[in-house]
Design a protein around this nucleic acid. Structure first.
Lengths: 217, 217
DNA sequence: AAATAATTTGACCAATTGGTCAGGATCAGC
DNA sequence: GCTGATCCTGACCAATTGGTCAAATTATTT
């Protein structure tokens, strides 16, 4: 009689079936939420995509909001990981190049996750607002100090660290969130890995060129 | 007995009531669609925000999709206007600076419109896909040639024109579409006009610095 | 002031929604 | 095998959904 509760540690360990089905449901839910947002998504759709019945989905996640929360939460870590890697001791150019690269890789490999996240924020971040204003805010504050330090020691052009961070977020996430527009405009079927390498090259060129202090050529 | 049909020219001219109510409905719909996407929005909500009854909304827009289409279409022109202004004859730095500035102004003044647009693309652009792949694609193609010309004449660094365009789109729209995140992270209540000027300064500095060829300082 | 056209709405409908529940099927350990 | 826990489902429910319609109300024209 161990009801599976997803958000906290299990008393009973997860059975294999439990692990498999929860993963299936979360993946399905991520897709549906990405396509329709929270309100537009239906549990029926999610169940269908997960290949099971609606009551079965409810067996693992009592309410739709639980499911949404679970999808959102498991995205957050992956979304933030590259940001946390920004090393204050490292070389600014290397660090920023690495960050842009990691964010682009995330966009390529976690498109739907990125879209769920984007939809949540687009719709006013009803669930994530608190988190954004507390944990994320403090994290960005710390990283902004790092960037500020790089600027003050003359290794970056004077620029608002926050807007630099936003620029990198926007530019890299664009290729996950707005990929239908990108592919349509470029006349491509999808964005290949090769294309992502070209993106990385372009972004790094513009942004880093723009940030590194100018010297004689 | 002239049923108001919104998408084509009227046989009968619009009455004052008609013009007023259609505007009210469109504004309300834009807000609701921005908050919940097409599927998540309900006609009841839209009617309530427009201050009228649901059947009354249906009197002006027979179906929900008509309403969605109308909201989307009236956004498109404004969304594109700054892009069309990019002048091949102008000075690249001036033109790009002006473009960034216009896009940021659009983000500040048409936040909900931008969000409806973003949601549509995020959800796979079911309605706009055709348009994106045809008209917009051709338009971007032309402007990409302009940028290519600027590069070939040595006035811009070698960079993929398409990804430059996407970078500017992403960076500027970010402040409309993801403003809840921006304000939460910055600890602001909203983004003032002054803040937008700081954004413009930062973006121009990074992007233009990155694009203009390097000479001796 | 009629008469006609435009506007508004309460009541309604069929379909879909999130969610429940009792009971059946399946599994793991013995 | 047997037993108890886990897993699954058909049937169901109340609420909400997009949409309709006849009748009432309000503007406009004559």
């Amino acid at each position: 009689m161990s009801k599976p509760d997803t958000l906290s540690a299990k008393v009973r360990p997860k059975t294999r079936i439990q692990a498999r089905n929860e993963a299936r449901i979360l993946n399905a839910a991520q897709q549906i939420f990405a396509e329709h947002g929270f309100r537009g998504a239906t549990v029926d759709q999610i169940a269908a995509r997960a290949g099971m019945s609606k009551p079965n989905v409810h067996y693992y996640f009592k309410r739709k909001t639980d499911l949404y929360l679970a999808v959102l939460m498991r995205t957050l870590d992956a979304w933030l990981a590259p940001f946390k890697e920004l090393d204050p001791e490292g070389d600014p150019e290397r660090e920023l190049r690495h960050y842009i690269s990691s964010k682009l890789q995330f966009s390529r490999e976690n498109r739907t996750a990125s879209r769920v996240f984007a939809t949540e924020i687009l719709q006013g971040a009803p669930i994530l607002k608190r988190y954004l204003g507390e944990d994320l805010r403090k994290l960005v504050e710390r990283k902004a100090e790092v960037i500020r330090h790089w600027i003050d020691t003359g290794r970056l052009t004077e620029v608002d660290p926050y807007h630099l961070v936003f620029l990198i977020w926007a530019a890299t996430q664009h290729y996950a969130d707005f990929s239908p527009q990108v592919t349509a405009v470029m006349g491509r079927k999808d964005l290949s890995k090769a294309e992502f390498e070209r993106i990385e090259e372009s972004l790094c060129k513009i942004i880093l060129n723009g940030l590194l202090p100018r010297r004689e050529s």
